[in-house]
Structures are given as C-alpha cells and as structure tokens.
Write a protein that binds this DNA or RNA. Structure first.
Lengths: 247, 247
DNA sequence: CGGGGGGTTGATCTCCTTCAATCAACGTGG
DNA sequence: CCACGTTGATTGAAGGAGATCAACCCCCCG
C-alpha cells in the first residue's frame, strides 16, 4: 500500500465531506475529539468484498466516499441486494458481533471506522450520536419497507423507474427542491447489480431501460448516464401515489 | 366505551406483561415513573385500522397484546405487508409526525401509548430507552432485509414453505429445540393476507398449499391447521441454506 | 332459504426468465 | 498496431411461473 493512498490523507473531522449527514452530524467539538480518538480509515477497491455474511466485525463506521452493497445469497446463487450504502451511510451493528449480510464495494470505497467497543461506550453517553444513529436506522427501516413494496408488487418497468427516481433524489442537494426538468442521473452500478437490487434478471433490466428510452421517459448518454427530461413523467411510471413519493 | 374495558385495567408498569421485552425493558424505577406520567392505553378491535398511512400521529407506543400489520398500498389497490407487530413491538417514529404505513389490528389489540413530544424529550436524556429502541429498530431492519430476499428471489412454493416454517419457529418455546416430527402449525391469517405478505395472489397461495399437501410436505386439517410430518423436509423446500435458517 | 366470506380449481394470458447470439469498449501481449 | 480475450450491455426467441378471470364449493349465520 502506497504512503499516499487517499485514505491516509483524510485525518480531521473538521473538513470531512460527510460531516453534516453521518452519525456524527450533530456532534460538538468535544465529541469530535472523542470520535477522532477511536477512528481510523480503510479503503477498498471496487468489487472487493468488505465483510462476509456471518463474519465477526471489530468496527462500525461510515462510508466517506464510494458505493457499497448489502447482499443476501442463496445456496444456488440467487442473490438479493438488501441495502445500498452511499456516502454518509452507516455500516455495522452496535451490540452485535456478526453481520448478517455480505458487504461489497461497488466502486472504490473509503470508510471512516470506529473501533466497535469504544464506539458502543461512547454511544451510551453521547445522545448526539445515538439520536442520530437511531434516526438513520429508522430511515433505513422505512427505506427497506418501501423496497419490500417494490419487490413484492411492482412490475419490472415500475421497478426501474423507481430506482432511477430514488437515485435522482439521493443526489439532490438537501433543502433544494428538485427542479423537475432535465435531471442528470449517474447509475452507480452495472445492469447486473441493478437486477440483484430489483429482484429481476439483467436482461429484463436492459430491456426495460431500452423501453423507457424508446418512450422518451429517459435519455441515455453511454450506459451509465441518464438524463430525465421530466421528473413528473418518471414519477408517474413508478406506480407510487404522489404523496407517498414526496415523503 | 365501557368503564371496565380491559385496556383501562392495565395501569402499572410493574406488572406489565411485556415489560422485559419492550422499549422500557432496561428502565429503572425512576424511569418507569417518568414513563407512567406520559402513558395511556388504547384498544382496537380485530380488523380495525389503527393508523392510516400519512396520518399525523400524536403518540408512539408498544403492543401489549394482539397482532397488527404494517401495510403499504398502491393507488390501484396492490398491497404489500411490510411488517408484523407482535406483543412488545414498537409503533411510531420519534422525530417524525406522520406514519408512512397503514397499521391494522389483526386480532384485538391493546396498545401502551406514550405522548409523542414528551417521549421524544425523554429519549434524549434516557439512554436506557433510546438504546433499547435502537436495538429493536436494528432487529426490525434485519427482519425486513430477510423478507426482501424472500420477496425478490424466492419461488411461490419456497415463499409458502418459508412462511409456514417461520410461523412454526415463532410458536416454538424459545430454548427448546424444535423437534422435527409432526409439528402442528395454525395459520393466523386468511389466504389473502398470506398473499399480501408473500407478494403473491391468493389463488397462487391456495394452489401452492394444495401442491405441498399433494406432495406430502404438509397435512391439512381444515383450512387453517397444518401438520408438518417432517420439518427437515419443509426446510429444504424453503430454499434457505441450513445455517441461514438457524440464524 | 338465501347470501356472503373464504377457499379451491380450471383455463387462459402475459410478463418475466432462460438460453443464446451479437456488439461495443477496453486492456494486453505479441 | 492488431488479434484476442474479457466484461458489460443489448436484443431475440422460446418457455414457464404466476397473474387474471371465472366457476364453483363449503360452511356459517341471519
């Protein structure tokens, strides 16, 4: 490993890019000092498995940059993504030693890790952290439940539209209302990963993307870059009712 | 409402049946006093909708007795169950006013409610409560993610087998190993509700149950009572690998 | 007796999977 | 520089699992 790899260059919480959204979002100066004392950075290459299902995990942490997947796999190879980790998302489970899901880096990933035992102690006496973690967990639970509706009841076209819609919203700067015209979306994953995410085959994903393109709902630029001329049109393709989507 | 309805008879936390498993599981005497000050009981009849998706909720709370469903519904009527609330499970979301899912009582339900605003305040200064709530939320998140694999990747037959298996395990007395022969299972729901759980139609549910019966995996006694001659056989029908199911 | 809720079964249809061929982009080594 | 293999993606053809539409049964209850 080279001396200058990017992970080692991030050192201070004060100029951390995810500071305003991660578990530490509500921390004060004193609390940041405590976090700095138990933290370290780790990097993973795209495609690398970060944690295997059932593994013992000696740390928890936040995604600083990159994208990672949580996956479940059946013996015969069928796999289902059960979570998407983007910058500022939290990995790991305080109070339990083994992870139930496999975590894989989709792109190169930098992780801000906290040693697990000290972090658990800190959690008990630092409401600013535990409150934020609770909030993030409840958000994930809501997202997981939304995803259950998608997996159980939506058609392939609705699934694809929903995915594009979700990625577009996640990229939107918080606070600003998403302006509805000509939104650019970059898919941070291959067709196969999309399929594993949506409970489809990669061929169906490809076909539905082509169909959405043919119908003018999206415009493709290469394989990964999507332009959405009219977000309202896309939203009507997701099958969600309007209030639900605004939530 | 009659003076003597069961809800009003529960009053003290000290003899509460869910005390050891609910959000308040780790509370001390002083903390119970604070909780008692902001709590009240509510009852719902079987079939009654307790909260509508999008509703404002002025309380959070725990299920004291009975069973309730969390459901998502699309405009055209497609519905998906996204959660099952049993005794001691928590309802509501501190920090957010409206519930994203519809909550329906399956059987008669008694709820121990806390006024929302005071509960949120209490949460910040009572790690014994917020820690427990975090733990419960993370458990629910794990359960939701297991369900995502079922919804996204399992065949109809595997879904039905999984559901029967899960109900059988839940009824088993904790600690005792489930003896593998002639297990009796009572389905606590109609075929339609099963379908909403599994992301299927009620016809498919019926057909697959018939198929499992024809193949000798289960024996039916009436519509709701199932006898499983060999749990191992049933488990092999779920598609889960052996360790996964034991988790 | 009629009616309705819950359940089963049949016939047909359709959406998605499966299997397979083809293509474009990219890197690598001769 | 080009042949070659690899990886990701698109598209086609065929088949199947589950949905849809519909008939019918059973049982309970008013």
């Amino acid at each position: 490993m080279g001396r200058l790899e990017s992970a080692t260059q991030l050192r201070s919480c004060s100029d951390c890019p995810i500071r305003h959204r991660a578990v530490c979002a509500r921390c004060e100066a004193v609390e940041f000092e405590q976090l700095e004392a138990i933290k370290y950075y780790r990097s993973y290459k795209a495609g690398q498995t970060m944690v295997w299902a059932g593994d013992h995990m000696e740390f928890v942490g936040s995604v600083v940059s990159g994208v990672a997947n949580l996956t479940q796999t059946m013996e015969d190879g069928r796999t289902q993504m059960v979570g998407l980790l983007l910058a500022s998302d939290f990995i790991g489970r305080p109070g339990r030693d083994n992870v139930p899901f496999t975590v894989t880096a989709v792109s190169d990933v930098t992780l801000c890790c906290f040693r697990k035992r000290p972090f658990e102690d800190l959690l008990v006496r630092t409401p600013n952290v535990s409150q934020r973690l609770l909030e993030m967990s409840l958000d994930e639970l809501d997202a997981a439940r939304d995803w259950m509706l998608l997996l159980g009841r939506k058609s392939a076209r609705e699934k694809i539209s929903s995915l594009i819609n979700i990625i577009a919203r996640r990229n939107a700067v918080p606070g600003t209302t998403l302006k509805p015209r000509n939104i650019e979306v970059v898919l941070p994953m291959t067709r196969e990963v999309m399929a594993d995410y949506l409970g489809l085959t990669l061929e169906t994903v490809s076909r539905q993307i082509s169909a959405l393109k043919r119908d003018g709902v999206i415009v493709l630029d290469g394989k990964r870059n999507i332009m959405v001329p009219d977000m309202g049109r896309l939203m009507s393709e997701t099958g969600d009712d309007v209030d639900g989507a605004l939530r």
